[in-house]
């Protein structure tokens, strides 16, 4: 536990030791705002809620979250510091979780900094703040899902660009698996149960149901188990690399 906390603190501090944190947060907030107000037509919609704001989260996360996760392991491999880390008396789970939680807390921080959106809708009207809170919780869990995928893929390479590109691709598949772009590929020949299984893997489906204001246990379990599975895979990858 101590080891995990030490790694968590180091990783979180690492985001702020470089301009990465600043750049990320600024870009995140700017694009959130731009998408919501311009593309989404927030004012024109004339609705005092944040559903437009949340509807862009999966698509922004698709590119921004792999930018956070790509360095987690790939950078350590490139600089060789992974040898230092793994020769310390650190259980594997502590390294995997410490890194993941640091990235998750960092993305949560960026998310919290979108609070002016919440202030805006409360100023303009009287939104259902319970629904908004549910949206934030859902968004945070979805960010965790993207991060877990990115963390695992970062462990497979020493090249951060590869880690980024592959993470975006895999995250994209998970995002859209409920949309026609994927479903059409399977429908017609695959059994219906397979299709609905694939569709049920979609981030969008689960995230949308949370942003309706209903925090269904199934959605939380979905994101929770997705994170767990990818983090276990991450541990397996790191351990396999030790075997050469």
């Amino acid at each position: 536990m101590n080891e995990m906390r030490a790694i968590f603190r180091r990783e979180l501090a690492a985001y702020f030791a470089t301009p990465l944190a600043f750049v990320f947060i600024v870009i995140f907030l700017l694009t959130m705002g731009a998408f919501t107000f311009y593309l989404g037509g927030f004012f024109e919609s004339d609705q005092a809620n944040l559903s437009i704001f949340f509807s862009y989260h999966p698509w922004l996360y698709l590119f921004l979250i792999p930018a956070i996760s790509m360095r987690l392991w790939a950078e350590e491999r490139r600089t060789g510091s992974i040898e230092l880390l793994l020769s310390q008396p650190v259980p594997l789970y502590a390294a995997v979780l410490g890194k993941f939680f640091a990235a998750w807390v960092f993305s949560g921080l960026a998310l919290v900094l979108t609070f002016p959106m919440w202030l805006t809708v409360n100023y303009l009207g009287s939104p259902d703040n319970g629904v908004i809170l549910a949206g934030y919780i859902g968004s945070f869990f979805m960010a965790g899902g993207y991060l877990a995928i990115g963390s695992c893929l970062s462990a497979t390479t020493r090249n951060q660009v590869i880690a980024f590109v592959v993470s975006v691709a895999v995250c994209f598949l998970f995002t859209v698996s409920g949309l026609p772009i994927v479903i059409d590929f399977f429908s017609g020949w695959a059994p219906q149960t397979l299709i609905s299984t694939i569709a049920s893997f979609s981030f969008l489906t689960h995230f949308n149901s949370i942003t309706q204001g209903v925090i269904d246990l199934r959605d939380i379990v979905y994101f929770g188990s997705l994170i767990a599975v990818w983090l276990i895979a991450c541990g397996v990858v790191v351990d396999m690399k030790k075997a050469g």
Partner: peptide, 26 residues
């Protein structure tokens, strides 16, 4: 253990780095 090439976390200061190692070493 001093690995080949003495890798460390470049964004940290030696003091911060040694504090991190101390925590890991309990």
């Amino acid at each position: 253990y001093l690995p080949e090439g003495a890798p460390a976390y470049g964004d940290m200061t030696p003091l911060g780095f040694l504090r991190f190692i101390a925590r890991i070493r309990r």
